[in-house]
Write a protein that binds this DNA or RNA. Structure first.
Length: 571
RNA sequence: GAUUCCGUAGCUCAGCUGGUAGAGCAUAUGCCUUUUAAGCAUAGGGUCCUGGGUUCGAGCCCCAGCGGGAUCACCA
């Protein structure tokens, strides 16, 4: 246990006092709630006859006590509402303990209480609950960051990203907009789920632990299964498993999948992230473009009531139809260079010219991809489909029906970022084997993201997979865009971070080995002794005096020490 | 991984040329029966991220480390 601050010690003392008064600070039984803050705010002003017998629970966020009356603000899942406490109503009899002691002194900001009463409007015009009785539901021992707000103004905002991400619960308590962002994230997934279920596609689950990682070009996390004594990888994509299910005879399957990639982290990348992948039999990539447009447009409409979404200083309009342009045309449009007929050597020259760092591991596909990423992608703000990628960079996509050297693939780009990736799936098992082998070649050249060969997947294809359209959408990236969040950490509840720094110093047990009673250990620390070495060097007489002083100062309810006891610790 | 900025009270942040550690909110105590970020008054509260160094003297300067932010690199 780390050292307690003065306020934390006070709260622990309050906890004990409550118990002494016969009040359980953590009661077991449920507290019946019949209304939310939002319901009251939405309906009461229209009909003052409503809510004359409410029961509501929430966390105390603010208190203003004026003698025998007080205003308190509680926050439930839907928002905040003000409470009015009056001493003689809380305590109608002679005994004013519940108000004077329990409410005024033993409750704190952060405590969770339940109240019963009726709703009225104060002279200041604020909808308020007049409390007739209250009950402590959970005592809070830690002090919340105290954020003050009034309409749009916020004082002392809780903004430190490290604390916000590490202690997301605090972020959620204190920054109401955060709750809304995650509500919207779920709304995006619900809209997708409804849309796809309505079409009759099946939501499925496939392995996260995979003996071979495939379906994307990325470096995996590696782990080990003890009883099988084998290496397993955390999936980087679920593509190859979903396609096996299409071979098995489903018309359409999709999965919201957590994928894991062992790569750099920044505001667009978290090591684990969520994708939806969808595969539909007897369709092609043109059909899939229509679906993506329709589905994403619907998400924007469901969430914002319009197809226009503000992202940073831009406004993105997801209204159908989106622009469609081939990759080569897009590169030519932005650079005036036609790379469609170029070989690897020529492409290397172009890449260098536009400012791409080139190395020997790069094949033709990678080079084109880099050129595209450098010159075109950041400039595509409004949703745009880029179609017809070179075969070298798409080992799982079907060869283009009419353009040699290309595959039937598209990405949707919006706000300069990839929104989705999709293709007519390659179902020619012999071609697929060849493509895997080419990937192996790239691997030998040093491309550590090249794909590995999956024999079982090839075997599945050999049984025959119908022509299939496949799609992957990054949910985190989409959520960022739809909620106008500048960083991926803002749309992931618990983004990956380095472990918290450990507090140095001796443990409670180490101190107790000297015979120090447990209750005194925090006091020893408070007196400035963090390590055993420091403690051993202490003067027993001075320590005795200091501890006695601290006991008094902190109003600790533990028996005073005798000098003999303290001396005994040092023998 | 590189560059750069940051780390001071429970929270948000000041801190002079290197000379006794500051404010607001929060907390405690007293007063006060409807306040609107903060009622009034008073008080308590600190490992100035850690460890070295320079100095009579370091929150401040130097070195190293830890943690974080931003930008870049990497990122089908």
């Amino acid at each position: 246990m780390s050292e307690l601050s003065e306020q934390e010690i006070l709260r622990r003392n309050s906890l004990k006092e409550l118990r002494d008064l016969g009040i359980d600070p953590y009661p077991a039984e449920l507290f019946k709630v019949n209304v939310t803050a939002k319901e009251i705010h939405d309906q009461f002003p229209k009909d003052n006859g409503l809510f004359q017998d409410v029961s509501i629970a929430g966390r105390i966020m603010q208190r203003r006590i004026m003698g025998a009356a007080a205003f308190t603000e509680i926050q439930d899942a839907t928002g905040k509402i003000q409470l009015y406490f009056k001493r003689d109503e809380i305590c109608p009899g002679e005994d004013k303990t519940m108000y004077n002691i329990v409410f005024k002194r033993l409750l704190d900001i952060g405590d969770i209480i339940g109240v019963k009463g009726f709703v009225f409007t104060t002279q200041m015009g604020e909808t308020t609950i007049h409390v007739k009785e209250f009950k402590l539901l959970s005592k809070s021992l830690k002090v919340l960051p105290n954020v003050k707000e009034k309409e749009d103004k916020v004082w002392d905002a809780f903004t430190d990203p490290e604390q916000r991400y590490r202690q997301r619960y605090l972020d959620l308590i204190v920054n109401p907009k955060v709750k809304d962002t995650f509500f919207k994230r779920t709304q995006i997934m619900n809209t997708m789920r409804e849309y796809l279920n309505e079409k009759g596609y099946l939501e499925v689950e496939t392995p996260i632990l995979q003996p071979l990682y495939g379906g994307a070009a990325a470096r995996p996390f590696k782990t080990h299964h003890n009883s099988l004594d084998m290496t397993l990888y955390l999936r980087i994509a679920n593509e190859l498993y979903l396609k096996r299910l299409i071979v098995g005879g489903y018309d359409g399957v999709y999965e919201f999948s957590k994928d894991f990639r062992n790569e750099g982290m920044d505001r667009f990348h978290n090591p684990e992230f969520t994708q939806i992948e969808l595969y539909v039999a007897y369709k092609d990539y043109n059909w899939m473009m229509d679906l993506v447009e329709e589905m994403v447009e619907k998400i924007a409409m469901d969430m914002h009531g319009t197809t226009k979404v503000k992202v940073g200083d831009k406004e993105i309009d997801f209204k159908r139809p989106w622009k469609r342009i081939t990759m080569y045309d897009a590169i030519q449009e932005h650079t005036t260079i036609d790379i469609s007929e170029m070989n690897e050597k020529q492409l290397t020259e172009v890449a260098k010219k536009v400012g791409v760092e080139v190395d020997a591991s790069m094949g033709k596909g990678k080079l084109i991809d880099e050129i595209f990423g450098e010159t075109v992608e950041p400039n595509l703000i409004q949703p745009t489909f880029i179609t017809d990628y070179p075969v070298e960079m798409s080992p799982l996509a079907k060869k283009h029906r009419s353009k040699p050297g290309l595959v039937e693939r598209f990405e949707a780009i919006a706000n300069g970022k990839e929104l989705c990736n999709a293709f007519s799936e390659l179902n020619d098992p012999i071609d697929q084997r060849k493509r895997f082998e080419e990937q192996l070649e790239l691997g030998k050249r040093g491309d550590d993201e090249s794909m590995v060969l999956d024999e079982d997947f090839l075997r599945a294809l050999e049984y025959g997979m119908p022509p299939t359209a496949g799609l992957g959408i990054g949910i985190d990236r989409l959520a960022m865009m739809m909620t106008n969040s500048p960083s991926i950490q803002d749309v992931i509840f618990f983004p990956q971070m380095r472990p918290e720094k450990k507090a140095a110093g001796a443990t409670d047990a180490e101190f107790m080995e000297f015979g120090i009673p447990e209750a005194w250990v925090p006091v020893i620390r408070k007196a400035g002794f963090k390590t055993i070495e420091e403690f051993k060097a202490a003067n027993p007489n001075k320590l005795f005096n200091d501890l006695g002083g601290l006991r008094k100062k902190l109003k600790l309810d533990i028996p005073a020490l005798k000098i003999e006891e303290v001396r005994a610790w040092f023998e």
